[in-house]
């Protein structure tokens, strides 16, 4: 929802099949509601016949009160996309203001997306709504990593309300999750921890990894979540799980 006080920065990425024998088509567009809006620029790192690597590079200071970041990714049938974030994001003190961060992903049939998210830090005084919605086509694969950090080091965290909705091919919900992390709930829900790292894999049978103490097989076959709580990002990396689900051949 666009309100008058929001500075919207919308990034659209569409990757689909190119001409026969040629490279896949990558279309990116950034829309800003005004000159002061910050947004993520999509930079194509490389792309081949069915595969593209794209970096999301912040332009301007993110994330401040009034910022509304939207990232809209569509991966066409049979296309394989890697999204890279060069650095983490800090949501700064918003002094009574708010910001939002909305991600929408649409995976076509037999499409694949690997997105190694960098830490999203909710500094003291920040108030962020972060929504991730994914729709997976038949035969598609998703590998998504997210790290949420509540407060910079030694700091009382701000507020974040994070929702995740992942739907399978028929619209069947695979994962629906709501994390309302505010002053009165963060300690209860995260057990006093500061960092929450999640790796989500869909559409792949994953054998055991050394990260399996943190493994949660979801109710949908081929859907696995790894999750680790900790006090520091380096304690919670889930590197083996990520390597396995992001590096596996299709």
């Amino acid at each position: 929802m666009l309100t008058t006080t929001e500075r919207l920065g919308r990034t659209r990425i569409r990757v689909c099949a190119g001409p026969p024998g040629g490279r896949c088509q990558v279309r990116t567009a950034v829309t800003r509601s005004g000159a002061t809006s910050s947004a993520l620029r999509a930079v194509v790192v490389d792309h081949g016949p069915t595969r593209a690597r794209i970096a999301l590079v912040p332009e301007g200071a993110l994330l401040l009160a009034g910022d509304a970041v939207e990232i809209d990714v569509t991966v066409g049938d049979g296309i394989d996309v890697d999204l890279i974030e060069p650095g983490g994001t800090v949501a700064y003190d918003m002094r009574g203001g708010r910001a939002r961060w909305d991600v929408r992903v649409d995976l076509g049939q037999d499409a694949a997306l690997r997105w190694a998210g960098q830490p999203f830090v909710v500094a003291g005084g920040a108030d962020v709504t972060r929504a991730v919605r994914v729709r997976c086509g038949a035969g598609s694969r998703l590998a998504l990593r997210e790290t949420l950090v509540l407060g910079r080091y030694g700091e009382q965290p701000g507020t974040i309300h994070q929702t995740s909705t992942v739907l399978g091919a028929t619209g069947r919900p695979v994962l629906v999750e709501d994390l309302p992390l505010a002053a009165d709930t963060t300690a209860l829900l995260l057990g006093g921890h500061r960092v929450l790292t999640t790796v989500l894999s869909l559409g792949l049978d994953v054998a055991g990894t050394t990260d399996d103490l943190d493994r949660y097989d979801l109710d949908t076959p081929g859907a696995v979540l790894w999750r680790r709580l900790g006090h520091h990002v380096h304690d919670t990396e889930l590197a083996t799980a990520w390597q396995q689900v992001s590096g596996a051949d299709r």
Binding site: D178, L189, G192
Partner: peptide
């Protein structure tokens, strides 16, 4: 779709 979906990651870790 209206069912609340509040996650409690710490309880999930303990349960598993």
């Amino acid at each position: 779709s209206e069912i609340p979906a509040v996650a409690a990651p710490q309880i999930e870790v303990w349960a598993q």
